[in-house]
């Protein structure tokens, strides 16, 4: 009897070594064949998304209620400020409207690609953030069901947020440009010099990310606008990324580098816009 029982008994060592083997197997498989396990990831995401959505909705509801209790004086002051700003903006819009027709004319003249202005956009709410990576990767509540595919660009407040890296049925994962793994090909709006905008968590503490590979002869100065470039194969051209400061010569003395202040406030991001257009790959263009 006793011997039989011992046979059935699974020791913790055995379980642990089995788990270790599974883990190592998973790592090897997902390293060699990244797509094999994506159905599992998608399924897990699909399972959790409705719950995360619910919690986020409750959370934002509560924080909105809490905001109602905030100081009345502050609100009145803010209201005054905002009405003033609205008036200023209204006049500005009038001026800009006049300029717009001119700009459109020149755009057509130059053959500028305005795909991102005309493309359909989907608003999505952030429902989860990567707890370990300093919240530079997050998930949103729109996925393949809404026509979202990987490599779509993500905007918020007129600036580039990042790129969709993975989609499930009703969720997608977005990597922001401040993530250390992110590198965006950029272009100075004024001088048309190209550069590479790289995420940098360290620098982000001061509100900056890195700009590298600027031509040594490029005449760029503080507060120049950086937009996504035409040579990028994943980012649509002409999306505002941010403004440079602190331009200096790289230690290698082959090119210049600078800091960039993103236009997007990543700290308080709640919702984003996903552009439903993917940059056509170069191979596709060859076929045409």
């Amino acid at each position: 009897m006793g011997r039989d029982r011992k046979k059935i008994n699974i020791t913790s060592k055995l379980i642990y070594s089995a788990l270790l083997m599974i883990c190592v197997g998973l790592i090897v498989v997902s390293y060699l064949f990244p797509d094999v396990l994506s159905p599992v990831r998608t399924a897990v995401g699909d399972f959790f998304t409705p719950m995360e959505k619910g919690i986020t909705a409750i959370g934002s509801g509560i924080s909105e209620k809490l905001k109602l209790f905030s100081d009345k004086k502050e609100l009145i002051e803010e209201n005054n400020k905002l009405t003033e700003e609205v008036n200023n903006l209204k006049t500005e819009i009038l001026e800009l409207g006049q300029q717009k027709s001119e700009v459109n004319f020149f755009r057509e003249l130059y053959g500028y690609d305005t795909i991102y202005q005309n493309a359909q956009k989907v608003a999505a709410r952030i429902i989860g953030r990567d707890p370990n990576g300093a919240c530079t990767v997050f998930t949103v509540d729109k996925g393949a069901d809404d026509g979202i595919t990987p490599d779509m660009n993500v905007l918020a407040g007129g600036g580039l947020v990042g790129i969709v890296t993975e989609t499930g049925k009703n969720w997608s994962k977005i990597r922001t440009i401040i993530n250390d793994d992110s590198a965006v090909s950029g272009r100075f709006q004024i001088t048309s010099d190209t550069c590479v905008v790289k995420g940098n968590k360290k620098r982000m503490d001061d509100g900056y990310i890195d700009v590298e590979m600027i031509n040594l002869n490029a005449e760029v100065y503080d507060n120049y606008e950086v937009v996504t470039s035409y040579i990028s194969d994943k980012y649509l051209p002409g999306i505002l990324i941010g403004y440079v400061t602190n331009v200096s010569i790289d230690p290698s003395e082959l090119n210049k580098r600078a800091y960039l202040t993103p236009v997007v406030d990543f700290e308080h991001l709640e919702a984003v816009l996903i552009i439903k257009a993917v940059r056509e790959s170069l191979e596709g263009l060859d076929e045409e």
Binding site: S12, Y16, L19, G25, I27, V40, R41, V44
Partner: peptide, 29 residues
């Protein structure tokens, strides 16, 4: 105990892997 600890850890890590892990199995490990 150890058994539940290892299994719970595996499940937790696996969930993190599925959503935010660059490689499956890393957090689970």
């Amino acid at each position: 105990g150890k058994k539940t600890g290892a299994l719970t850890g595996f499940a937790c890590g696996f969930l993190l892997d599925c959503t935010f892990g660059p490689l499956m199995g890393l957090f689970a490990l």
